[in-house]
Design a protein around this nucleic acid. Structure first.
Length: 124
DNA sequence: AGGTTGACTGGGG
DNA sequence: TCCCCAGCCAACC
């Protein structure tokens, strides 16, 4: 589990006060990548769930934006919308995501939705 | 410093 | 169930 550490002083003690910027919190984007990398093969999670797990309950859109610029090793395809669907409009990206998920054994129903009760992954 | 921009969401009609 | 709309949030100009 990742926590947004608002005040590192709580852990580092008072002398931190005059220390420049003790280990600046990872940017929100990086935290999104870190958590996304932990989604197991064949499972998915949602933009909103990631945002909540990162302590930003309404940050779903930001998560989507972050994934749009993610590094190679981030399994971005394992993140879908709250309805269990792919958020891309019909496009190469849409088909790529669907193909990658299918390759991992994730099934889509008639309406192109994934059963989140079955494939959904909850951040530890 | 402040407006813009999304791979979002939940609620209402 | 489908569509529309108004919040929302952080990185980028």
């Amino acid at each position: 589990m990742h926590w947004p550490v608002q005040d590192t002083r709580e852990f580092l003690g008072p002398r931190v006060r005059d220390t420049p910027a003790p280990r600046p919190d990872p940017s929100f984007f990086r935290r999104v990548y870190g958590l996304t990398r932990r989604i197991p093969r064949g499972r998915v999670t949602t933009y909103g769930a990631l945002a909540r797990a990162l302590g930003v309950p309404r940050g779903a859109r930001t998560v989507g934006w972050a994934l749009g610029a993610c590094p190679e090793d981030v399994p971005w395809h394992r993140v879908v919308n709250a309805q269990g669907g792919i958020s891309f409009r019909p496009s190469p990206g849409f088909r790529l995501q669907r193909a990658l998920l299918r390759a991992e054994g994730v099934r889509f129903n008639r309406r192109g939705r994934i059963d989140l009760m079955k494939y959904g992954w909850k951040a530890l």
